[in-house]
Design a binder for these strands. Structure first.
Length: 498
RNA sequence: GGGCCGUUAACUCAGUUGGUAGAGUAUCUGCCUUUUAAGCAGAGAGUCGCGCGUUCGAGUCGCGCACGGCCCA
């Protein structure tokens, strides 16, 4: 690398490491048996207080040193493993003068393994009295400052490992994220759903209106698209007899990066045969309550100054009604395309002139209503023209049996009774193809094989997608999607940060 | 795409009207066997994001660029 200019601190550290090597110290051994975790040791003392004694059990434990208080012939260290943090007391007369003089050459950030008994210090802190100590891994670079830690968001994202070492809150977010996914999985497995994996590389990208990433398969000599949604594959599986399926995996959309968009993001999609969108509205509420309870211990959460209550039942409102009641759109305008265009421009909202009325309505909704939907709210009654995969309402063929879920101003979920009439589906695709030819790069492609699958018969089905990143933002009170994605996309930093 | 803000030592941050670059932590040296952001004494450490300009002189003023943050579209 070009940035190997040795700074003072790192340069000195490298010199010290060279000396340790020259003295025959193995800086990267892997022969220490860490038989106990810090968590196990603490549990043991909780349950058997006699363990806190020089006659008590001898523990073998390893971790990264996070702080060192060196005295002349004894030292305290704080070290950490995946289960927590513990103090150890290293005395020259216990570990021997040879080990102690090696220890004095170690640094914060190094990994050590220790064996010893537990005791209580004068200040009452449980502490490992080490009788053996072994260097397990030498750190070349110093950790950030112990009190202020690592704050610079750019460095936190680019060097997430440092963020995880230094900031417990970051660790907690990603532990919670893992638990959220596990809790969702349990909700669905408990309801007899089958977890599946469908292609990430698709010859025809489908299931959403979005711009895909394109890649190329050399041997097959063909372009493939990173998927924008798994929907059309999951519904093929319903055709195949998997009546209840779900997938939790990445989608890719070739669009901007912001506090609420990352080009790759994680989506749950699930499909249930013999169910309607109304069943999914019920299931969604159950899922959110179970997941929130499991992960946060409560069915209400604090998010950016608002208390979000997942207790039910949640508000449910037709799209047009929400535009009138919340968006302040006069009811007379809702069927008046020209009137809506005028209204939009009076609000400073730019609308493409070729947009059809359904699209104009959803754009107005995005700006006038969505930010105001703080408590969980299902919006229903989406126009057919913006819902090319949804079943039509039996009462009104212009709208679909569809809902979107909004919480804290975020679109969190999208679900509907599935369109399983192959002829209608073909017409909808054709309409999309026409839109694409008219210049909408996000319109669907024709997918003949999907039509063929529907022609074999898909039972009446309802399906839904839930954004896992945004759900994690809600449950961890994170204002930016980058806080809940371990390695968010960043432009390359061609210099500077090393 | 637009606006505002940020970028100074490994980290967190000061830096006045333009006049030799500062602190704490970390590091190094010495002392110290119950510390908790340990303590005491001393030392070293900088391409002030990058480039151009104004000026006798730029971390500081101007223009451009890069990266990041927040807001708007």
């Amino acid at each position: 690398m070009s940035n190997e200019k040795a700074s003072d601190v790192i340069g000195k550290r490298r010199e010290k490491i060279a000396e340790l090597k020259a003295d025959g110290v193995n800086l990267f051994p892997n022969d220490f048996a860490a038989d106990h975790t810090i968590g196990v040791i603490k549990d043991k003392i909780e349950n058997e207080p006699d363990s806190l004694s020089e006659d008590g059990p001898r523990f073998s434990v390893a971790g990264r040193m996070m702080a060192i208080n060196k005295f002349g012939k004894s030292s305290f260290i704080r070290f950490r493993d995946r289960t927590g943090q513990l103090q150890a007391y290293i005395r020259k007369d216990r570990v021997g003068s040879e080990t102690y003089s090696l220890f004095k050459r170690l640094d914060v950030g190094d990994f050590v393994g220790m064996k010893g008994v537990m005791f209580t210090t004068k200040t009452g802190e449980w502490t490992l009295l080490a009788s053996e100590l072994k260097l397990l891994c030498k750190a070349v670079r110093p950790l950030p400052e112990k009190f202020h830690g690592l704050k610079d968001p750019e460095k936190r994202y680019r060097h997430r490992y440092l963020d995880l070492i230094m900031n417990n809150s970051t660790r907690d977010i990603f532990i919670k994220r893992s638990r959220i996914v596990q809790a969702i999985r349990n909700v669905l497995l408990n309801r007899d759903f089958l977890e599946v994996e469908t292609p990430m590389m698709q010859p025809i990208p489908g299931g959403a209106e979005a711009t895909p990433f394109i890649t190329h398969h050399n041997v097959l000599g063909m372009d493939l698209y990173l998927r924008i949604a798994p929907e059309l594959y999951l519904k093929r599986l319903v055709v195949g007899g998997f009546d209840r399926v779900f997938e939790i995996n990445r989608n890719f959309r070739n669009e901007g990066v912001s506090t609420r968009h990352n080009p790759e993001f994680t989506m749950l999609e699930f499909y249930q045969a013999y169910a309607t969108f109304k069943d999914l509205i019920t299931l969604t509420q159950e899922m959110f309550r179970e997941v929130s309870q499991e992960v946060t211990g409560s069915t209400s959460v604090e998010f950016q100054g608002n208390t979000i209550d997942f207790g039910g039942p949640w508000r449910c409102m037709p799209l047009l009604e929400s535009l009138q009641e919340i968006g302040g759109v006069d009811s007379g305008l809702l069927n008046d395309r020209e009137g809506l265009l005028g209204f939009a421009s009076s609000k400073g909202i730019t609308i493409t002139k070729t947009d059809r009325i359904g699209k104009i309505i959803t754009k107005l909704f995005d700006i006038l209503v969505e930010p105001k939907l703080i408590q969980p709210t299902f919006i229903t009654g989406y126009p057919v023209e913006v819902s090319p995969l949804s079943r039509r309402s039996d009462k009104n063929p212009d709208i679909t049996e569809r809902f979107e879920l909004f919480i804290a101003g975020y679109e969190i979920a999208n679900g509907f009774s599935e369109l399983n009439d192959p002829e209608d589906q073909r017409d909808r695709f054709l309409q999309q193809v026409a839109e694409r030819e008219a210049g909408n790069p996000e319109a669907h492609f024709m997918d003949e094989d999907y039509i063929t699958a529907l022609e074999y018969g898909m039972p009446p089905t309802a399906g839904e997608g839930i954004g896992i990143d945004r759900l994690t933002m809600l449950l961890t009170d994170s204002a930016s999607i980058r806080e809940v994605i371990l390695f968010p996309h960043m432009k390359p930093a061609d210099k500077g940060i090393h």
